[in-house]
Amino acid sequence: MLLEIRNLHASVEGKPILKGLTLSVDAGEVHAIMGPNGSGKSTLANVLAGRDHYEVTEGEVLYRGRNLLGMSPEERAREGVFLAFQYPVEIPGVSNAYFLRTALNAVRKARGLEELDALDFLEFLRGKIELVEMDDSLLQRSVNEGFSGGEKKRNEILQMAVLEPTLAVLDETDSGLDIDALRVVAGGVNALRSAENAMLVVTHYQRLLNYIVPDRVHVLFDGRIIRSGDKTLAFRLEEEGYDWAKSPPETNRAVA
């Protein structure tokens, strides 16, 4: 199993958010996590990435059989965990190209690969940029500074394409995107899909799942996964809403 989350409890500022979340993801799989606002989707994503603002009070997370929660954020990234942020941070004064190269080299170094100089990196980057259909000028600008919503999300996918993670967590990368941008984001994700990698796609809308077809769909509600199923669960949710999902699954089993 690539990722095993067992009975995970996490709080923010003393307030419990995740309340016993259990989830397993195997290599080669794409899992979608859906749930209403405030149900804990971003909390889960941030706990996996190692944000110290979130306190894990119970449970464990194994990544490739190792204790993920014991690793620093940078170690996790070097081990192949990637979070596409719901709200990417603007970093004035740091050029996007420099940021991408520094990150890539940090990860390559940890993986025993040679670091790339500025020229080799640009060469490497060219293909990735085409993949996300990003305007070249965004490379020389400060990280995310003054980027439109869509540009920020493309930039997240570009980072993912550059770092080639083993486990990618996408936190509402589709929110606020027009259909073009959605296609690009999905294209980036699908390009990374392989038998060795896995993805956790957090989304509000079934729409994205037309492009990124998930192996499993989970409904997160009040810090717990209350229902899991195949891709049809997403359609059902869209039609019936979360109240339906909250009702005891037994009564719905026939339709799920």
Partner: peptide, 20 residues
């Protein structure tokens, strides 16, 4: 955190932001 989540260690992340 953003920088660290991309594999950049904490000290270097601080240096990058300070230089910025």
């Amino acid at each position: 955190f953003y920088l660290r989540s991309r594999g950049i260690d904490a000290d270097e992340a601080q240096r990058i932001l300070t230089r910025a």
